[in-house]
Computed example of a mutant assay.
Amino acid sequence: MKKWVLLAVGVVLALIGAVWVLQGIGVITGSFMTGQKLWFLIGLVAFLVGVVLIVATLTRRTPKKTT
């Protein structure tokens, strides 16, 4: 898979996860997710997976092409 695709997926997951965490703990209001522990946990998992993808993508070395 292309490096930029993994990076983009990681960024999107981290951002969505952060919003869900903030909704789950009640910082962002106006949604059925507000104040719900389930959405806090789902958001935390999504955020952590996104961060792992970002870090793994940025630290991964690309193999040199041999001819």
Rank of each mutant, 00 (worst) to 15 (best):
M1Y: 05
K2Q: 12
K2G: 04
K3E: 01
K3H: 06
K3M: 10
K3F: 00
K3G: 01
K3V: 00
V5L: 15
V5W: 10
V5D: 00
V5R: 14
L6F: 04
L6D: 03
L7I: 11
A8I: 07
A8C: 06
V9M: 13
V9F: 08
V9R: 09
G10V: 03
V11I: 11
V12F: 15
V12S: 09
L13C: 12
A14S: 11
A14Q: 05
A14T: 09
L15G: 06
I16L: 15
I16K: 15
G17R: 12
A18F: 14
A18W: 11
V19Y: 13
W20Y: 11
W20H: 09
V21W: 10
L22A: 09
Q23L: 05
Q23M: 14
Q23E: 13
G24P: 03
G24E: 00
I25Y: 07
V27T: 11
V27D: 08
V27F: 14
V27A: 13
T29A: 13
T29F: 03
T29H: 14
G30F: 07
G30E: 00
G30S: 03
F32P: 12
M33R: 15
T34D: 10
G35C: 03
Q36C: 04
Q36K: 15
Q36Y: 05
Q36P: 04
Q36N: 14
L38P: 00
L38R: 07
L38H: 05
W39N: 01
W39V: 02
L41H: 13
L41R: 13
L41D: 05
G43K: 08
G43V: 04
L44V: 04
V45D: 00
V45R: 08
F47V: 00
L48V: 11
V49G: 02
G50V: 02
V51P: 07
V51H: 11
V52S: 06
L53E: 03
L53N: 09
I54G: 09
V55I: 15
V55P: 06
A56S: 13
A56M: 09
A56C: 07
A56Q: 11
A56R: 08
T57H: 13
T57S: 14
T57V: 13
T57D: 06
L58G: 03
T59C: 05
T59H: 05
T59M: 09
R60Y: 09
R61Q: 08
R61I: 05
T62G: 10
T62L: 15
K64A: 14
K64R: 13
K64Y: 07
T67E: 10
T67M: 07
T67N: 10
